[in-house]
Amino acid sequence: MSSTPFTTNERWNSLIVHGRPQAILLKAIWFVAYTLSNMTKQSVTTAHQRIVEVPLDQFVAHTKRIVPDTVGVHLMLSDDLPGQALLMMSRRTALTVVDLLLGQRIGTTKQLGSIEQSALGELGNVALSSFLNILAQPSWGALKPSPPAVVADPTAWMLDFAKRAMQDQQNTIHIIDAHYHAPATSSTIQLWILPSGISAHDEGHLTAHTIESS
């Protein structure tokens, strides 16, 4: 893969200023909870959200926080607001979510076959699209995600992402990290958005800016 020098993106830099999310970005994060509630027909709330700035050499250690047996849905953001998105959940939650999306009794789905993966992909597509719908401004043009891909091993995907960031001469990786919780089924879904082109805030140091829960 060819190397592309790091370039800043003015749009991301207007949404995250000095490591802090602006109001419209918070609204977009919270709106995902509303979308997940609509799709699964159960109450989903934003349990936790933060923006983390991770030096590239510490990103691998950061990915080790992802527990084994996690299922991910990967989408890319279009060039107008470049980056990557990963929706992650435990396998148990994935099976529960599939049952809810297919209108089945919880416990029916035992395997993640073709139709089940398609349902999870659609969940990722609609969740990220609703996030982008809030951020889209008339002068920006359309913000679109790529078609979704279900990732069996999100950690491997992240290592590949870090390798590409290194090739692109990035020093730090920003992570918009949001956790969504559905109390009725004790399910948690985690959304990572990895924007491309944010200026480093505190280069060389791990900084985590935790912002208040809704």
Binding site: T35, N38, M39, N125, V126, S129, S130, L132, N133, A136, P138, G141, A142, L143, K144
Partner: peptide
Amino acid sequence: LTALGQQSIMTEAIRAGARDFLVKP
């Protein structure tokens, strides 16, 4: 029938000939 409920996309779709626009979910 799309999850992208953005004004610019709706306008483009209507101009291209769409008769209706439903936003998922």
